[in-house]
Design a binder for these strands. Structure first.
Lengths: 369, 369
DNA sequence: CTGAAAGCGCTTACAG
DNA sequence: CTGAAAGCGCTTACAG
């Protein structure tokens, strides 16, 4: 974050006067006037306090910890807020409390539907809890992660929702991160005190291998792009599953390029060139699987008779493709929702018994295998 | 935004002392100590000022308007910042200036790849300009738009990036919106003073109609879900194009449900039932087109021989499907990038000659028509 | 259940 | 090109 642009001067309006009810209820006095105690013309907590006949502190409490305020006062405060159209100033709140109502979220990619659904889960939980969130896209690049964490720290976030263990390490090294809680998404932590929500990539890869083996495929390939740590774990589980069945996991095409549908077609062409005897492919995500399917259709290769295809994630098209695609159903929405919940409960000071939440996965067996 | 949760008490550390270089360069004195002028232990602008031997104001200026600070002072300030690990406190900045470095962005949907790419464009421009952004999802629901705009106003955003004219109207009605600039995305405004970046949905729909007609299709259908205003404009242009060619635009299936790939299959089944003579379909987006293609494959309908399919947006799979799908290439990334640029230039007080930016579209003619 | 005063860390005109 | 002082609108312990 460098050279900040010069914001326009804010027009500070002259203070406006406002009528104030003289005393309790009943007599709607056409009494004196109060003016906002501030010179900006904006309605502040002080104006609300005056209107409701309480102190600013009490207004603050009525908003943050309603239980600590007498029902009657709370009522009057709420009315005053409505009447005046008061909007709390978040910046003032953040400055005074050294904590904002924003959660910083780091995801690897915004063009991947998986993380978008995770963000939807986060949003759904956070919206109800009164938090905003800031989204950072890391692209799996270490420098980007470092930089985003720095930037976000300047916003004094209430907490972090991270998408990798590496990010967790970076954050912990920062001096400013002491009291800021974080929950890791996707990767599971080592203990219940190491907050995380996810599932085992390795076991998921293993399940796909077992399924292909059970179906009778003997020359399965592993196809991957992107090659981030989670892909590698799927691969690890997949290889293990094959080995257990006495199959040598020697067919694979790994490319570091980003994942796209077109890349799936390319991977399939490569594997066909290099291993004409390949009878099935585990594409490490559904985009690749879709591309592989299109390529089979283009070449007139029958799926699954001549080539079986399995994907990962169960994106919207997997179930309605022709043929429908076998894939691993991952709990990405719930990962977002539950990790946001875990974070907020931590912020509230609640005790979290289960700080390591394994949401599992499911294998959806369909026509393509 | 209701009942805010109770954040944990922030642990305000005792002030720490810090060594300070005595005078100019050369003598690395083991001199006295300065302590942060504040009691939180955090490094503030005042500490940086002391370290660099200037006033806090000058530090502030060195960060915001470097041109107004002497090269030498700026150098020393930058060094002091690095040495101390100073991170500007955004909340304090926002409170003091009544303007934050965050841009509020409203999009209809986060599960739609189109808007994700728009957000990528926004992010790419904003990242370089030193702004953060808050993303709100409206779901095309008026109440949600109203509520999000209220919430965001409390964050004193530097500006708004909106995705519809309705949102623009809502914003303008709010008292707090006076000095906050906004740019509309997708829909074009009426004049150069009515800031907007987009393209004509109507003309795009018209282009698809002309293309189908030129190819010789005589019974084209319009298929749509979601039915938001932009879909309706595509329809309008499409109908106009058919009418101009002497074709009655009497085949269409419109469903209010959200757009999904599966919905595309459903729409195709419906149109086939109701109009067995239909020879081509314009799906108002690529997800629907993909579903329609899958359905044709399922039913053994040859594309395009027995049924032509056109989509909208050119999402990643359109070009590599089998057959590849004819579609309208929309400038959604650029819409994000350019509208962010227009907004920031406005914030900097620059003169914007072209406040209505028509980015156009392209028709990608492929195998499916 | 409620309040007075101090303080959070910046930026603002204005003057030099 | 640079600075002293005031102020932004909240929340914080503490005491009652």
């Amino acid at each position: 974050m460098t050279a900040l642009p010069d914001p326009p001067m804010s027009q500070r309006a002259a203070p406006k006067s406002r009528p104030k009810p003289k005393s309790a209820a009943g007599t709607s006095a056409t009494a004196p006037v109060v003016r906002g105690s501030r010179a900006t013309g904006r309605v502040t907590i002080i104006d609300v306090a005056a209107e409701a006949g309480v102190s600013a502190m009490t207004v603050s409490r009525a908003l943050k910890t309603p239980a600590l305020v007498q029902e009657q006062s709370r009522q009057r405060i709420l009315e005053a807020i409505a009447r005046l159209g008061y909007l709390p100033n978040q910046a003032a709140s953040t400055l005074a409390s050294a904590r904002s109502q924003v959660i910083a979220v780091l995801v690897p990619s915004l063009t991947n539907a998986v993380f978008i659904e995770t963000l939807s889960g986060i949003r759904d939980y956070l919206a109800g809890a009164g938090y905003q969130f800031l989204i950072g896209e890391t692209g799996y690049v270490r420098d980007k992660e470092e930089q985003l964490i720095s930037t976000y720290l300047a916003h004094a976030p209430a907490g972090f929702l991270l998408s990798s263990s590496e990010q967790h390490e970076i954050l912990n090294k920062r001096p400013g991160s002491r009291d800021i809680p974080a929950v890791r998404m996707f990767d599971l932590g080592r203990s219940q005190h190491d907050f995380s929500v996810g599932f085992s990539q390795t076991r998921a890869g293993h399940a796909v291998a077992r399924h292909l083996v059970e179906r009778g495929y003997r020359r399965p390939a592993f196809l991957a792009a992107q090659l981030d740590p989670r892909m590698m774990k799927r691969r690890e589980g997949f290889r293990k599953g094959l080995l257990e069945a006495g199959i040598v996991p020697d067919i694979e095409v790994l490319l570091p390029e980003p994942t796209t549908v077109d890349m799936g077609a390319q991977l399939l062409r490569r594997v066909l060139e290099q291993h004409p005897d390949c009878d099935s492919v585990f594409c490490c995500n559904d985009d690749l699987a879709l591309g592989a399917l299109f390529e089979c259709q283009r070449q007139g290769i029958s799926v699954p008779a001549q080539m079986a295809i399995a994907g990962f994630n169960d994106l919207s098209w997997a179930a309605c493709a022709t043929p429908s695609i076998t894939t691993v159903v991952t709990p990405r929405y719930d990962i977002g929702y539950k990790s946001a919940e875990m974070l907020v409960r931590q912020l509230k000071g609640e005790d979290i018994a289960k700080g390591r939440l394994d949401l599992g996965f499911e294998l959806a067996v369909r026509e393509s295998t």
